[in-house]
């Protein structure tokens, strides 16, 4: 399980990096989405993996921390997801504005001489 999730984070991150290095603004926004998944997952796994141990306290029992997943990274990631949505929206609007003003969807606002 550890290997799987670590590998997946690597793949998502690599795909994201590839995309943000591309010249088209839509590629970059897709890359940012993939990067945010990878980073959110990474922050999440710093609390280690735990199955069937949601951080919902069972009242009336003595609290054993090993019986609950780490709530702190979860809270951090929850806000990160929502903020991620907001930044995506902002980037999208900037992208559209730049496309309207410059007539191209190249990230620099002008086409390079070569095809890409």
């Amino acid at each position: 399980m550890e290997l799987t999730i670590a590998l997946s984070i690597g793949v998502l991150f690599g795909s994201g990096i590839w995309l943000i290095l591309r010249p088209r603004s839509f590629q970059v926004i897709t890359g940012l989405l993939l990067l945010s998944y990878a980073v959110n997952l990474f922050i999440f796994i710093t609390g280690r993996l735990s199955v069937n141990k949601p951080p919902l306290i069972v009242q009336g029992e003595l609290i054993d921390p090993s019986q609950y997943a780490d709530p702190l990274p979860q809270a951090l990631v929850l806000t990160a997801i929502v903020i991620g949505f907001a930044t995506t929206a902002l980037y999208l609007v900037v992208l559209l504005g730049s496309r309207g003003l410059t007539g191209t969807d190249h990230v620099d606002g002008k086409e390079r001489d070569s095809a890409e």
Binding site: I5, A6, I9, V11, I17, L21, A38, F42, R48
Partner: peptide, 17 residues
């Protein structure tokens, strides 16, 4: 670069876990 970055991220995550 993307492959290297992904691998580095994998190693770090795996190490953390």
């Amino acid at each position: 670069i993307a492959i290297i970055a992904g691998s580095v991220m994998f190693v770090i995550s795996y190490f953390v876990l």
